Simulated assay, not measured.
Amino acid sequence: MQLVYAFDAYCGWSHGFTPTLREVAARHPELPVEVVSGGLFTGPRAVPIRQFGYVQGANAQIADLTGAEFGEAYDRLIADGSFVMDSEAAARGVAALRRAAPERAAELAGALQEAFYVDGLSLSDPATYRKVAAAAGLDADAVVAAFESPDSLDEAADDFHRAAELGVTGFPTLLAVDGDRVAVLARGRATADDIDVRLSQGALS
């Protein structure tokens, strides 16, 4: 059995779920964690953030319910409403980081969300991946090259397909997967204790 974490790096609720995912991974080192990007803001939804009028209110709710931090640099980045959240670019970055250290994918996904939501860095900018990779002790040049490679587009598309194939309709979603069997452990918000209860009840039994 493994865990599959379907998230979007530009999803505030996924940012709020990061501590839960970190705790679950720490409690269950025997369960590999596959990280899959969901593609929340792609195609016609990759538009200036001002078109999502609910963002600030939603972030306040996320912070209140999960303790997630939304930094001043992030507030400045989105202040004029022109910033575009491009989930395809973010998924390419997730794929590049995952390729560099697949066993640390969950950790790196959280670091990437912190780069955006706390440090106010664009996930379309290669410099962001250089910074995240360097901070994680990875080969930053290799990560940037992977992000800029045409192959990363295919990997992003594969992630979107994988999430859809697993029946994911919202982010974040944490699944237990064993062969063809799939069980939902969490959608949106949950604690590590909630997930432990579901695992102990035999999520896939």
Rank of each mutant, 00 (worst) to 15 (best):
Y5H: 10
D8P: 03
A9V: 05
Y10G: 00
Y10R: 08
C11R: 10
W13E: 01
W13Q: 00
S14C: 05
H15V: 09
G16L: 05
E23C: 04
A25I: 08
A26H: 07
E30G: 03
E34H: 07
E34A: 04
E34L: 09
G38F: 02
L40D: 00
G43P: 04
V47H: 13
P48Y: 02
Q51W: 10
Q51E: 12
V55N: 07
A58R: 11
D64E: 15
D64C: 15
L77Y: 04
D80T: 04
S82E: 15
E88L: 12
A89Q: 12
A90I: 15
A91H: 04
G93W: 06
V94Y: 11
A96C: 09
L97Y: 07
E103Y: 06
E107V: 08
G110S: 05
G110N: 02
G110T: 00
L112P: 06
E114M: 15
E114Y: 11
E114I: 13
A115V: 10
F116P: 10
F116C: 02
Y117I: 04
S122R: 11
P126L: 08
A127I: 13
T128W: 11
A133P: 02
A133M: 10
A135G: 13
D139L: 01
A146V: 07
A146H: 06
P150C: 01
P150W: 04
S152F: 05
D158S: 14
D159G: 08
A163G: 04
L166C: 03
G170C: 12
T173L: 02
L174Q: 03
L175P: 08
V177E: 00
D178I: 09
V182G: 02
V184H: 01
V184F: 06
R187S: 13
D194S: 14
D194A: 12
V197G: 10
L199P: 01
G202I: 05
A203M: 12
